[in-house]
């Protein structure tokens, strides 16, 4: 079966990465990319029925007040719980980037969305450095991970920009299960190529250098760095000198995640 990938991107309340996220899916060949304001989706959740992938984008929903992603997650939980459960049960894809990842964690859809019971087992909180930090980071990809977005990719270099990116688990059991199931998709790496907790290579200080997580099916995926801001090769910090030396790739590294998702849908979810 070959599907025409339909992407739904939720906007509003201070989320702000819709333009680059929509461009990323279009450049990846998605058939239909639709932006929808959360208020309109709450009024009429039917667009979720026809979509194959839902993206929760980056930004500052509700100004990061109370805690990053918290107010938006509360709003979703109290108005769209049932359609969300169905969306996940249907095996559809959810991608959360930065604020979107924080929302997924606070909703309890990561790391265990399978249950769909919105029980929070992990959280994302303030960086140890105590501030927002914007820099490109090197990421190593877990080759054993079931994550459908990172299939076949060894590593990525992406811009990272957040003030609350430190991932914490409820207890050691949750942490162990994630390792066991290879749900620990992405790790920040230092100059030696190994996972790191050191600033600024790891901007938030997460233990073990964890930067992104998927659920056990690999279909719900959240990450702190921004692949949608690396779809053009020209936004890389050394792009101009690389181009002058003739070794600039034709596409930005972040695009690969979107291409994988679109291909996965195209092949029938």
């Amino acid at each position: 079966m070959s599907l025409k990938p339909r992407i739904l991107i939720i906007t509003g309340y201070g989320l702000n990465c819709q333009k680059e996220s929509a461009a990323a899916f279009r450049h990846a060949g998605a058939h239909d990319v639709r932006l929808i304001h959360l208020h309109d989706l709450i009024t009429d959740p039917r667009p979720l029925d026809s979509a194959h992938l839902l993206m929760l984008i980056g930004g500052f929903s509700y100004g990061d007040h109370v805690a990053a992603g918290r107010a938006f997650a509360t709003r979703l939980k109290y108005s769209l719980a049932t359609p969300f459960k169905k969306f996940i049960a249907d095996g559809k894809l959810i991608l959360g980037v930065c604020n979107g990842f924080q929302i997924l964690m606070k909703l309890g859809l990561l790391p265990d969305s399978g249950e769909g019971r919105f029980i929070q087992k992990a959280t994302i909180t303030e960086n140890i450095c105590g501030r927002f930090y914007d820099a490109w980071v090197h990421l190593k990809i877990n080759p054993l991970s079931p994550c459908i977005y990172t299939k076949g990719l060894p590593s990525l270099e992406l811009p990272s920009r957040h003030g609350e990116g430190r991932i914490l688990f409820k207890d050691d059991t949750v942490a162990a299960r994630i390792k066991e199931n290879h749900q620990d998709v992405l790790h920040y790496t230092g100059p030696d190529g190994k996972p790191t907790e050191d600033f600024p290579y790891n901007p938030n200080g997460t233990e073990g250098g964890l930067a992104g997580l998927c659920n056990s099916t690999g279909r719900v995926f959240g990450l702190m760095p921004h692949p949608e801001a690396a779809i053009l090769p020209w936004t890389h910090p050394q792009a101009l000198s690389r181009s002058r030396r003739g070794d600039l790739p034709g596409k930005g590294e972040g695009l690969a995640l979107f291409v994988n998702a679109v291909d996965f849908i195209r092949h029938g979810l």
């Binding site: 702000n16 936004t235 910090p237």
Partner: peptide, 14 residues
Amino acid sequence: RSYDHEVKGLSIVK
């Protein structure tokens, strides 16, 4: 670097 200069994904000379 506490200021975001990458949002929108269009920054060429940063």
